[in-house]
Nucleic acid binder design. Structure first.
Lengths: 194, 194
DNA sequence: CCTTGTATTGAACGGCCGTTCATATAACCA
DNA sequence: TGGTTATATGAACGGCCGTTCAATACAAGG
């Protein structure tokens, strides 16, 4: 029995990626079998190979897609450094909270990529980080920020912002806006911006 | 062939945990087989079960051992909040860099623990985090720190400090002392301590 | 030298793994 | 209506998994 009404490649492909994303994020790439993914979508394992050449590529496509979406979603705002820093902090936290599985997977499963795939994802991530570095550099040049080392401050701010995803819950004590505002202030404090 | 000269339980047990730690940290718990661990130590897989009841307990013992070592290594310094914050920042970064595999594993593989084991490790971690929270609370009460939310600031500082392990290399551009000093300043800036 | 107990082997268990492929069906096109 | 093509099945492949256990080799003690 194949090709039941309502099924088609345009629907099945995204459903497979969506199921793989959720399962990989929840249990880890190595712990999830192709059969589990297929069951989630209502297929036999063999059918997955109509949509991906292998499991490794399925993971890689998820990570690459996430990084490209992230870069596309973050435009290139202009304005004074302080306003751009504010924008970056708010965008980063909000985007991460809205794409928790993708973000989690991108940090956890990098090591499961083949070297070539790893390098490609790292390049995309570096390109995103460089946007923050440029803001810090501009602010430092104007004397508005006090940055001992641009690369280190970039990594420190991003690490702080990423931390939100490990504990924030929508039903929690703090509203999203409170979280955004406090992190904005902490990020400014880190680089001595008043 | 068994019990070759020089082998004994006192040596084999730690060697198994050491190999498991390195392999789990490098490839992930689910991706490492008991046979791989045994090979690393020069044993057959069956012999591992003289030293651990199962693979899950092996992971749990590694994580629990790490958290207990961490709590033991961090004494309970006293003094004014600013000095204790300085101590915490420096201790945390230095300890993490010196125990990179343990720290990495403790963050990555929590989800592979059974609920009861997960809860135990979370409790130990929370107990460590509370030490920083107490410093922030004391500083805020004295009016030396400006902390919008103690729990959030605790998580933010720890997230920032944890970030160091993802990029620091001994042969890198910055010395360990530079990294410590800059993070000390950033942590103070985050909570408005001058 | 012989016994005892510890440390280890090596084979076996049932089960799941990623992937391939011949086959079958449903939707579309002429 | 009939042929073509896209979509999916289900069985099979060799291989590795965590774990158990009877047999065995060795070190130590009497």
């Amino acid at each position: 029995m194949a090709r039941r009404t309502g099924s088609s490649a345009e629907v099945t492909g995204p459903r497979i990626r969506s199921a793989a994303l959720r399962l990989f994020a929840r249990h880890g790439y190595a712990a999830v079998s192709m059969r589990q993914i297929a069951t989630e979508v209502g297929l036999q394992a063999g059918a997955l190979y109509l949509y991906t050449p292998d499991k490794q590529t399925l993971l890689y496509d998820l990570l690459r897609g996430h990084m490209e979406d992230l870069l596309a979603a973050y435009g290139a705002p202009d304005g004074p450094p302080e306003a751009r820093l504010r924008q970056f902090v708010r965008f980063h936290i909000a985007y991460n909270l809205d794409h928790a599985d993708e973000v989690f997977l991108s940090y956890m499963e990098l090591r499961n990529l083949e070297p070539a795939n790893f390098a490609a994802i790292e390049g995309l991530r570096r390109s995103y980080e460089d946007r923050l570095s440029q803001i810090l550099r501009d602010g430092a040049e104007r004397g508005e920020f006090h940055v001992a080392d641009v690369r280190l401050a970039t990594m420190a701010i991003i690490a702080m912002l990423n931390g939100v995803n490990t504990w924030y819950r929508q039903s929690g004590r703090l509203s999203r806006e409170e979280v955004l505002a406090i992190h904005e202030a902490m990020a400014k404090g880190m680089i001595g911006a008043r």
